[in-house]
């Protein structure tokens, strides 16, 4: 059976924009229910997958509480990013709930979750490359109707280099600077919780340290942070809470220190 809406492998850029049509995002009712208690943001017992595809997450739980940094680590293909996307509403949830600030938001679309105060920085394509740094930040604040110049000033304080380059196209910046733009864009909504999908992917160790410092700084302003990291050891060192995922399920959970000290975790995931 061929896909009636597929392109048959056509790669003709003179008729079809190679950027394609964007990701498929499941349709949702948009209903919320009060669900008091529990952590500030939690994806509870999530079983989920893409469309009608196989389940990728199996009864997986991820949470972050006020004033915390929570880190998701695990081997390649463990479903770390998928878990993050499930919390953000980009997957089809078969079972489980997502709760934010005492509200069940499982049936909200990703956009509606942004409006509820979730900030999300995807792993790739996380900036508007053809737009200037300042325009990127403006687009981050698109849903805000109030004056957001204060927030922009705060972002520039946090990432001084961005102020310098604010009229430059974001696509022309270095990898580390792009990640700063991406985080800055997400901060523009004044989110109540920030989700980062591998913010240090593809940057040099020095830049990585600096990015971690900035992330800690953001956390100190009172925004809880949930992030996926490839550099497990470094990430767990700054984490209040850590989740080790294996094949889409929770393998180990604990504070960052506990996990770093756990001989099993050390042996399997931290290289001894």
């Amino acid at each position: 059976m061929s896909d009636p809406y597929g392109d048959r492998g056509n790669k003709d850029v003179s008729i079809a924009n190679p950027k394609g049509m964007g990701s498929e995002i499941p349709q949702r009712s948009g209903q919320t229910r009060p669900a008091p208690g529990g952590p500030f943001l939690i994806g509870e017992n999530m079983t989920a997958g893409y469309g009608n595809g196989p389940d990728i997450l199996h009864d997986c739980t991820i949470a972050v509480d006020q004033g915390e940094i929570a880190v998701i680590v695990g081997p390649n293909g463990a479903g770390k990013s998928t878990g993050m996307k499930a919390v953000f509403g980009m997957l089809d949830m078969r079972q489980g709930h997502v709760k934010l600030d005492g509200e069940d938001i499982t049936d909200l679309s990703p956009q509606a979750r942004v409006a509820k105060g979730m900030g999300f920085v995807p792993q790739t394509s996380n900036i508007f490359t053809s737009m200037t740094v300042e325009e990127n930040l403006e687009m981050g604040a698109f849903i805000r109707t109030d004056d957001f110049s204060d927030t922009m000033a705060q972002v520039y304080d946090l990432f001084p280099i961005l102020k310098e380059k604010r009229l430059q196209a974001a696509g022309e910046l270095s990898g580390g600077q792009r990640q700063q733009v991406a985080v800055g864009r997400a901060l523009m909504t004044q989110p109540k919780v920030l989700m980062l999908d591998e913010p240090t992917a593809g940057v040099s160790p020095i830049v990585m340290d600096e990015l971690f410092d900035r992330i800690i700084e953001v956390a100190r302003t009172g925004i809880p942070i949930l992030m996926v990291e490839q550099n497990a050891r470094q990430a767990l060192e700054i984490a209040d809470k850590g989740y080790v995922l294996v094949q889409g399920a929770n393998a180990y959970t604990g504070t960052g220190k506990e996990l770093l000290a756990d001989p099993e975790v050390r042996k399997s995931f931290l290289g001894g």
Partner: peptide, 24 residues
């Protein structure tokens, strides 16, 4: 203009535009 910039943003990166609350 805001509307014009949202068009450019959408053209640049549809998924991210969606996450920024731009109505496609």
């Amino acid at each position: 203009t805001r509307a014009g910039k949202s068009m450019r943003a959408y053209s640049d990166n549809e998924d991210l535009a969606l996450l920024s609350g731009i109505n496609p």
